[in-house]
């Protein structure tokens, strides 16, 4: 039983890590600041959730679980708020979001977004 829980938890944590990695790739690959924020924040929150869930399974039901849940609540509060603030700042600084198809974005890349 403990073994099964360990592997399940490990699998979840690994999935979370993979998600975070994908998010990082997204930050590198996406064309403009808003899509990048989007990639970073969603995968960050999601990845952290998966990892914490995995760690909960590994640790079994104890005080540690409660602490992990509190950490999760904290991440759910801060990570989206931070993404929102970042997007807000980008908007205030005059970055306009790309609207249109991906192809147009690629064509306009030279002129463009940072």
């Amino acid at each position: 039983m403990a073994d099964a829980l360990f592997w399940a938890g490990g699998g979840l944590a690994a999935a979370g890590a993979l998600l975070a990695l994908i998010g990082a790739l997204g930050v590198l690959r996406f064309p403009d600041v808003y899509t990048r924020i989007h990639a970073a924040s969603i995968t960050d929150t999601g990845g952290a959730t998966l990892m914490i869930l995995g760690l909960c399974l590994i640790s079994g039901l104890s005080l540690v679980t409660l602490k992990l849940v509190l950490v999760w609540v904290f991440i759910m509060l801060t990570s989206p708020a931070a993404a929102n603030a970042l997007a807000n700042a980008a908007y205030s600084a005059g970055h306009t979001p790309w609207i249109g198809s991906f192809r147009i974005m690629q064509d306009n890349r030279k002129g463009g977004s940072r």
Partner: peptide, 16 residues
Amino acid sequence: DHHVVLRVAAKLLIPI
């Protein structure tokens, strides 16, 4: 005020 989200989050977070 573009910062409703930030403000709400901060109000929740500061006591914590």
